[in-house]
Design a protein around this nucleic acid. Structure first.
Lengths: 344, 344
DNA sequence: AGTCCTGGGTGAACCGGTAAAGCTTGAGTT
DNA sequence: AACTCAAGCTTTACCGGTTCACCCAGGACT
């Protein structure tokens, strides 16, 4: 395992190029103050020695840090199934990479743990800012991080994220569109299988579902709040489909639960979409792989991530930027939605 | 947005506790050299001021770094669908967290980009070691990182990972078990839809599939190398099922392709498992959600992650540890496998 | 010839910790 | 009473960069 080879420092590079440390620093940061010839000699020396600046030292010195934090508070088993996050993360990273910044990722068990983590990251100068997801009503992270003065961007509707600059999708409008679409197909008994009500965006969708049903004069709406896990989606679907007045259409809060729902329907001998229509959310490739393919409320999650990351940099560098929306999830009809059965 | 409040340093804490910086450092690192009374005063002062040590400064000073790197080289769209990675990452993190270490994650486009990234992470002292995944034959990362002297642990069979300490699952044995199981059910025309042959573990499985079929005296084996994306799995399945001598059983390299395969079978009016049996790999929750449920070669991915992380710490701290296996994926029969149709 | 720039560079201070050597003090020998 | 020793702190020298005040040479101006 090749000798530990004492790591080389800026001093060696300076010596080899016959200049001072300061000159090397200037050259490497593309600042004026060194002639082109010297700059060239310095780069040459650095290349020969295989030197790259110690980022730890640099950030100690210039007070800038090269990472942002993201803590996700859901059990891993569940996360792995949510295509959403990886795509979201990759969006974030595409922006970070441009600024040669890294993402510090951690899975946490609860909000308290997250708050403690963010605090130690921030006070330990590991991160220059953070991205917060999965907001609850009266989320304790808002006051905690505000107190710390940690630059952060919230992913969620401003009504949930306190004073934090936010980026969000208009879930209310999307949920309403979903309901209207199903109603237009002729469905009257529509159900919704959502995430935990404590979670802000689930609550928003629930409220929108409720009010849209009312607007349409439909009283056949039912909602089940559950987790995001497929198994929970399956259980909820099973109980809905076994109930007396079984719904003819079900709207899910993510796509994994919709897939599970399709499985349950099949298991019960119901055909999709002839007997029951299913509509997913957070369209991922998965929706195109099942048979029938799943209709979904789809949006560009990668782009969502880039938008969030960009906003975080705005927070870090400048005056607090405005919260803003990214495009509303839009209906993508596929094979799992159709008019309800005649005898509905 | 609460005043930027000049961040406090160890000096202020020392002053308030009426001791020197050194004493504070000693106290906070739980080292002997301060009396209990003083230690208490110091903690008190730190708490009042809300101080936490600047980890950047600390790591500059004591030469230890608080992070390890992981670069994954697959398109994000695809990654999101692979339940494997999130679960794997969470396993890694459960070990890192104990040592209050963080994970630096980056998605890269190709191996060259990964090598450059690892180099800058290492030279920039951002990481103390790295986890490498998705090995190719003659993987260029092996010599490159060895050259750098970067402590690393390889996830893959030692035949692929050069001299790097490795952790791996015995894919050859698992693939053989899969084939034997299907053969025992009576299948003679068995196909396998695998990842790209360039990828080491796909190649290993391919070879094991081939040789096991031969051992069993079956010449009806066919293999298709594709990506890991569901759509590719769907395409491969479609062409297999349309072929003259269509297979009665198909083994997939991950579970997402198996789900896609089930979709294709349904679309073609074939019933699973009556007409065709499907066997997935990397068992995730997804396999239990479809209908029929998917039989799979399953293993504990979370544990795989913890094992890898532990090994990395061994590499970093001590003499190079031995490479070792984690448990071999084992067959978990569910609803997607059965004897072939009579007229097979 | 004397003054004034100005581009190109140097040197020392500093960022906020840790590590190791040095200094007190009081109790325990001898 | 002098001598050792250890516990408990303090001092000081780093770690490897960045920054800023200052310096030096030589050309332009007066």
């Amino acid at each position: 395992m090749s000798a530990p080879a004492r790591r080389i420092t800026i001093k060696e590079v300076a010596a080899r190029a016959g200049v001072s440390k300061g000159a090397v620093s200037l050259a490497f940061n593309h600042k004026p103050g060194v002639s082109d010839a010297t700059r060239e000699r310095i780069f040459e020396a650095a290349r020969e020695l295989g030197w790259a600046p110690n980022l730890t030292a640099r950030s100690l010195s210039n007070q800038q840090v090269g990472a942002v934090g993201l803590a996700i508070c859901r059990p891993a088993r569940l996360l792995g199934l949510e295509p959403f996050y990886m795509e979201f993360i990759s969006g974030i990273e595409s922006v970070l990479a441009e600024r040669s910044c890294s993402l510090l990722l951690r899975l946490v068990r609860d909000l308290e743990e997250e708050i403690a983590l963010q605090e130690s990251w921030w006070k330990g100068r590991l991160i220059g800012g953070s991205i917060l997801v999965d907001f609850h009503e009266n989320d304790p992270r808002v006051p905690a991080l505000q107190q710390l003065g940690l630059p952060a961007v919230a992913v969620g509707h401003p009504s949930l994220t306190g004073g934090l600059p936010s980026v969000w999708t208009d879930d209310a409008t999307a949920a309403a569109e979903a309901v209207r679409y199903l109603a237009a197909l002729g469905h009257r008994r529509i159900a919704r299988v959502g995430g935990p009500t404590g979670l802000g965006h689930s609550a928003i969708r629930a409220a929108a579902f409720e009010s849209t049903m009312r607007d349409l004069g439909l009283d056949g709406g039912r909602q089940v709040a559950t987790g995001f896990a497929g198994e929970e989606g399956a259980r909820a679907t099973r109980s809905l489909l076994l109930s007396a007045d079984r719904p003819t259409a079900i709207l899910y809060d993510n796509d994994i639960m919709a897939v599970a729902g399709a499985g349950v329907a099949a298991e019960m001998g119901l055909s999709v979409p002839a007997d029951v229509s299913l509509l997913a959310w957070d369209d991922s490739q998965l929706c195109r792989l099942t048979h029938p393919t799943l209709s979904a409320m789809s949006h560009d999650v990668h782009n969502f991530g880039t938008e969030v990351a960009r906003t975080l940099f705005d927070v870090i560098n400048g005056p607090v930027p405005a919260s803003h929306q990214v495009p509303t999830p839009s209906l993508t009809p596929r094979g799992s939605t159709a008019p309800p059965p005649r005898t509905g």
